[in-house]
Amino acid sequence: MKLSAKIATSVAASAVAVAQVASAGTLDDVKARGELKCGVSGGVPGFSAPDDAGRMQGIDAAVCDAVAAAVLGDASKVVFIPLTAKERFTALASGEVDVLSRNTTHTLTREASLGLNFTYYNYIDGQGFMVMKDSGIKSTLELDGASICVQAGTTTELNMADYFRNNNMKFTPVGYETSTQTREGFEGGACDVLTSDKSQLAALSTEMKVGPAGVTILPETISKEPLGPVVRQGDDQWMDIVAMTLYALINAEELGITSGNIDSLKAKPGNPAVARLVGAEGNMGELLGLGADWSYNAIKQVGNYGEIYERTVAPIGIPRAGSVNDLWTRGGILYAPPIR
């Protein structure tokens, strides 16, 4: 009887504990914690991969650094949590991470049915196929009957199925859990072709024994993959903060503000748009529920979008000039709403 009473009490207690779900604003949670929890892939060079010192580097990681700088004033106050493609949405919805910045494609299904909001894009990608150079294959239309290594559960898998169906070609998927495993499978000959977003293909080829010179990334791009940070649905303030931080980085590049010249520009801004962005004028931060120096901190500590790109994505062999990821003023489609 004593035991059953004990069980009953503990069951009742756990039920109550479950009922108390954190419903406070994410901004308050992050401020109270003093740390930003950021979900990344953790294994894709250029996007998020640990450097020699164990610090997460890449364009996805930089977004979180910038948000931490804007909210907490310190870009180093980020806890990076590596997530697989499978875990990522549950981790965000359950509050395990505050921001999901994990080369995640924006789609209708995800936006509408998973309880998430996509903010903006930090990299615009497209899916491609990579083969060994000695296979002599020049086009994806030659791939009828091929085995294709793919990361299971991604939009990549769906685009591939659509593309092959559309072109009346057959294929055998070989699905792995992580992108590292797809690379190992491809290298070991478990498949003829490796498919992923083109940026990832370039990144993975740098880790291969034969190196980027031993492989061919086929010219066709079969999908649109706008990648960007994701937040939980129902916290509009937090969504605005993440989106605006990203906009600030892009606008900074457009206005010529860099981590190097921001201090002198803050002292003597000249252009009113610059003055607003560096926090010398207006009350932009206050409107977001942040300090006046939110964008100053982000740009000063992390750099503008262009600086981040040159530091992270350019080294894996994806030049930016004139590509879709260049500014709209230079022939790309990177366009951020004004900070005013």
Partner: peptide, 30 residues
């Protein structure tokens, strides 16, 4: 005592289930 324990455990499971459903609805997850 058995009946009481069964009711409490049953209620525990019920409230777990209900909380889950409520949270799914609150977060817009279908």
């Amino acid at each position: 005592v058995q009946v009481l324990a069964a009711v409490v455990v049953g209620y525990g499971f019920y409230s777990l289930f209900q909380t889950t459903v409520d949270n799914l609805v609150a977060r817009g997850i279908q």
